[in-house]
């Protein structure tokens, strides 16, 4: 029982560990008990019950699986859409063009209904977010063991295939959106206008520090909520898939099929929410309050 519990635990934690590449500092005890020698060592992080090498590596390490899958999916998206864009005809569209057009029009409708300023960046940004996040989430529907198994056969110790279950991926996008919020706030209202917006409301100039505190918390909450909402949903969904995968193989489908079907809704919805909130935040950045 104890070993079974251990294997379940290690199975779960193995599936939730990224393939991290970074530098282990000198003198670190590695997962196999060896000690890192002079000058440290650049390597993939391994983890065991007692050692967490990825944490030891600190900030200067990179999750290779997250980067690989997110960039591959981004390129897949752009390649597909670019192919359609090159051959785009104003006559009768083919199946592929029809499909792409329906997505583009869906995004355009959303942008037009929320964002009322002239900005050529917003619609392509929203399209990129929607499709890219959707594709990253879609990796969740690949049975949890397939790709990690193939990877382990190839000698790769960890492989987390859903980039949006990595807080770095979602936080990275959210920070990029945050940068755009700050940029457009200052561009549209000027530094003074932006500062006034942060400090003179909601309670008037006599409570300036209090206003500032409220508004800055609200401002920072935007990217944080954006990142954590997507990450939390996808991480939880992935976790449920992993737990289902612990069941005997003949019983898994009873839970995994309904959960996967339900998850189709979630991955689309999360991509949509990320897109709409981005548009809303940028629309707010363009407007005087």
């Amino acid at each position: 029982m104890a070993t079974e519990l251990m294997t379940s635990k290690s199975y779960i934690s193995h599936h939730l560990t990224n393939l991290t590449f970074g530098k282990l500092p000198e003198g670190t005890t590695r997962y196999d008990g060896t000690i890192v020698g002079d000058g440290g060592v650049w390597t993939f992080a391994h983890s065991s019950a007692t050692v967490n090498e990825a944490a030891t590596m600190g900030f200067w390490a990179i999750n290779v699986d997250t980067m690989f899958w997110s960039i591959s999916l981004g390129i897949l998206f752009l390649w597909l859409f670019r192919k359609v864009a090159i051959n785009a005809t104003s006559g009768v569209p083919g199946k592929m063009q029809n499909f792409v057009e329906s997505i583009v029009e869906f995004v355009e409708d959303n942008v037009n209904s929320i964002f009322h300023h002239k900005n050529a960046l917003i619609a392509p940004l929203a399209l990129t977010i929607f499709v890219w996040v959707f594709l990253m989430n879609l990796m969740d529907l690949v049975p949890v063991d397939w790709i990690p198994y193939i990877a382990s056969q190839m000698g790769i110790p960890y492989m987390k295939v859903v980039p949006s279950t990595d807080i770095n991926a979602t936080m990275g996008m959210a920070l990029a959106v945050f940068a755009l919020i700050i940029y457009y706030s200052i561009k549209m209202k000027g530094v003074g206008g932006f500062m006034a917006e942060l400090s003179l409301q909601p309670l008037g100039k006599w409570l300036l520090p209090f206003n500032l505190f409220l508004e800055i918390v609200g401002l920072i909450a935007k990217p944080v909520s954006l990142a954590l909402r997507l990450f939390g949903n996808m991480y939880a969904g992935e976790m449920v898939f992993i737990l289902i995968a612990l069941l005997p193989f003949w019983a898994q489908w009873v839970l995994s099929v309904p959960w996967a079907i339900f998850h189709i809704l979630i991955i689309t919805l999360q991509a949509f929410i990320f897109m709409v909130l981005t548009i809303v935040y940028l629309a707010m950045a363009h407007e005087e309050h």
Partner: peptide, 27 residues
């Protein structure tokens, strides 16, 4: 763990958005 991936993701995101804005959306 928060690490360099976050920067990598920002850079990738930036390039994807620019590409989409220049070569995908207008046509």
């Amino acid at each position: 763990n928060i690490n360099l991936t976050i920067i990598g993701q920002i850079i990738a995101f930036f390039f994807f958005v620019v590409f989409c804005m220049k070569y995908v959306w207008p046509p």
